[in-house]
Simulated assay, not measured.
Amino acid sequence: MRDITLELCRENSNFLLKPAVYIIGAGPGDPDLLTVKALKILTRADVILFADSLVPVQILDFCKQDAKIMRTANKTLEDILPVMVEEVRRGKSVVRLHSGDPSLYSATHEQMHLLAEAEVPFEVIPGISAFQAAAAKLKVELTVPGLVQTIILTRISGRTEVPENEELTALAAHKASLCLYLSARHVENAQAKLLAHYPGDTPVAVCYRLGWDDEKISVVPLTEMAEFTHQEELIRTTLYVVSPALAENNHQNQRSHLYHPAHSRLFREE
Rank of each mutant, 00 (worst) to 15 (best):
M84L: 01
P126Q: 00
T160N: 07
P31K: 03
V21N: 02
H109F: 15
L153Q: 03
F62T: 01
L222I: 15
P244V: 11
H98K: 14
Y240P: 07
L54A: 05
R185N: 13
E86L: 09
S13W: 08
Y240E: 05
P19K: 05
M1N: 14
D201P: 09
I59Q: 02
I59W: 02
C179H: 09
I217M: 02
L178S: 00
H186M: 07
I80Y: 01
I69T: 00
L210T: 05
F62H: 11
V241C: 08
V187W: 00
T143F: 10
A184K: 08
D79G: 05
R10K: 15
L147N: 13
M84K: 02
S157L: 09
E7Y: 12
Q58E: 13
R89P: 04
G146L: 05
A38Q: 07
W212F: 14
A196I: 02
E233S: 15
Q254V: 13
I48P: 00
E110R: 11
E7N: 09
L210K: 08
I235Q: 14
E7Q: 10
S243H: 10
Y22T: 01
S243Q: 09
E227R: 10
G200R: 12
H186V: 03
A20S: 11
L147T: 08
A184T: 00
I235S: 11
A176G: 10
T108H: 03
D52E: 02
A184H: 07
R268T: 11
E78V: 15
H197K: 08
I125A: 01
P28M: 12
E11D: 14
N12Q: 08
Y198L: 05
S93F: 04
N12D: 15
P82Q: 09
A130W: 04
K92R: 07
V187Y: 05
D101Y: 06
I128T: 12
H260V: 04
Y22C: 01
I235C: 13
R155D: 01
N250K: 11
T237I: 10
T237E: 07
V36T: 14
V88Y: 04
L6N: 11
Q149P: 04
A172I: 05
K139Q: 04
S99P: 10
H257C: 10
E161M: 12
A173K: 14
Q58W: 03
W212P: 01
E87V: 13
V95G: 02
G200Y: 03
E248H: 15
D30Y: 06
L42A: 08
P56V: 05
T160I: 06
Y208F: 15
L266Y: 14
Q132K: 09
C179Q: 04
R236Y: 12
